[in-house]
Amino acid sequence: MRKVLFLLVVCITCFGFSQNNQLFDEANALYNDGKYAEAIDKYEAILDSGQHSAELYFNLGNANYKLNNVAPSIYYYEKALLLNPDDEDIKNNLAGYAQNMTVDAIETVPQVGFARIINNIVNTFNTDAWAKMAIAGVFIFVILFLLYHFSYATSKKRIAFVVSLIGLFFACFSVAMAFQKESLDHKDNPAIVFAKESRVKSEANKTSEEVFRLHEGTKVQVLETYDDWYKIELSDKSTGWIPSKDIKILKTF
């Protein structure tokens, strides 16, 4: 019975992928014919089935850009970049085209000093890579410490001891970097403004003072959630509360 159920699930999954591939090809054909709205409907039908990919989001970004849909084009380019951060085409379309359509010109406050150096080191690798390097460091430490313990030659014992300590230090350093990277990734909660114009408030209620306004396509960081409000931060470190309906979180798949 279990085998039958397993085969049934496999068949349904394969059929779903086949259907989505057909939809993707149809959407691409519509895009090439200049029927961008129809192409978007096809791409979104694939998303509704639960399938996500950088290529799918990239094509959605392109189709929305062709229709001058500012917020959706930036939103989908950003989601594509989350799934494939090294893709130059995504980066070029996002920076070279879509972001030029935004109204808000917000300066980025650069990091300086020691914090900048640490963050640059931390962001060199992802959490998994740092964790693997930590394991490698521990492995080197154990092997060379055993070599130090069982070796009789003084020169070999000295070299093994020094290198084992280096391996231990590297392991501890990598663990620290892994935790720091995990912390940074957890705090990183970007979103895109979808409202044509949104009034950002000093507190999470409609009657509070307006601190500034944002327009569609602007990227923000979500810091807190309270009822139907998000506390956001801009790249210039300005903060305020925005209605949750006015923005879309990027890391929601």
Rank of each mutant, 00 (worst) to 15 (best):
K219T: 05
F194E: 04
Q221I: 02
K201R: 14
K181Y: 08
I166H: 00
S198Y: 03
R213F: 07
T225R: 06
M177D: 10
E216F: 00
S183D: 15
P190H: 02
Y230L: 06
N189I: 13
L184S: 10
G217L: 01
G167Q: 06
P190I: 01
R158P: 06
L214I: 02
K206C: 05
G217I: 01
V211F: 04
G217W: 00
V175T: 10
K231L: 08
S235N: 11
K237F: 11
C172A: 10
F179W: 10
R158S: 13
S202N: 15
A171D: 02
L168W: 06
I159G: 03
I166M: 05
E209H: 12
A195W: 03
R199F: 15
G217D: 00
E233V: 10
S183M: 09
F170E: 15
A160H: 08
V220N: 04
E224Q: 14
K206T: 13
D236L: 07
A160E: 06
I232N: 08
V193M: 03
K237T: 13
I232L: 07
D236I: 12
D227G: 00
Y226Q: 08
T239Y: 09
A195S: 15
G167C: 04
K187V: 08
D185H: 08
L234Y: 06
R213M: 12
L168I: 04
K237D: 13
Q221S: 10
R213Y: 05
T207F: 08
F169P: 05
F179K: 14
A191E: 03
V193W: 00
F212C: 00
F169E: 07
V220E: 04
R199P: 09
D236H: 10
I159N: 10
A176H: 07
G217Q: 01
Q180N: 15
E233P: 09
F170I: 15
E209T: 12
D236T: 10
E203K: 08
K187L: 12
Q221A: 06
I166K: 01
K187H: 09
H186L: 11
A178R: 11
G217P: 00
L234T: 08
E203V: 02
G217H: 01
S208Y: 06
I232C: 07
K201C: 08
G217A: 02
K157P: 05
V222A: 06
L168G: 11
R199E: 12
I192G: 04
F170W: 13
V162Q: 07
D236W: 12
N189C: 13
F169Y: 13
L223A: 10
F212L: 02
E203R: 09
I166F: 06
F169V: 15
E233M: 14
K237N: 14
D228S: 07
K156E: 13
